[in-house]
């Protein structure tokens, strides 16, 4: 079941918001990457795991009405790009909020939630979503 391993492989990074920090230029990357796009080979072996605070600000967002199959039960949902205080941006849902309350620039915090039922195996996946501060 290749599908199963595809979904647990990144679990630790998703559960604890673990990023990679380049030991050469000190930039932080999330999702984690093994090569710093600025330092290239200078960064190899110097990318260190760092846990992020889960605090950030909404860069922009949408309310998704036409949803992909794993998210049918959540329709409609709020999807945002959140800029974390440590620097990187990520894509995640905003939950426990009325769409009218969500605005660009509002501060948010990460929470641990069920994400969706993925794939033909119907595996329930967990990860981060965000709530308004």
């Amino acid at each position: 079941m290749g599908e199963v391993s595809r979904f647990w492989r990144e679990s630790v990074h998703r559960y604890r918001l673990v990023a990679h920090k380049c030991g050469n230029c000190q930039r932080t990357y999330f999702p984690p990457r093994d090569v710093c796009p600025i330092c290239h080979r200078e960064s190899v072996g110097k990318m260190k795991e760092v846990e992020m605070s889960g605090k950030g600000v909404i860069e922009s967002f949408t309310i998704v009405h036409e949803v992909p199959s794993p998210f049918v039960r959540q329709r409609p949902y709020i999807l945002a790009i959140v800029k974390l205080d440590e620097g990187p941006s990520l894509t995640a849902q905003i939950v426990d909020a009325d769409p009218g309350e969500v605005e660009i620039g509002k501060r948010v915090s990460a929470v641990f939630r069920k994400i969706a039922q993925q794939g033909t195996a119907g595996i329930i996946q967990y990860g981060y979503k965000f709530v308004l501060d």
Binding site: V67, Q74, L79, T91, Q93
Partner: peptide
């Protein structure tokens, strides 16, 4: 893994 997984289309 990092966009569609979270509901991005």
């Amino acid at each position: 893994e990092w966009e569609a997984f979270f509901g991005a289309t």
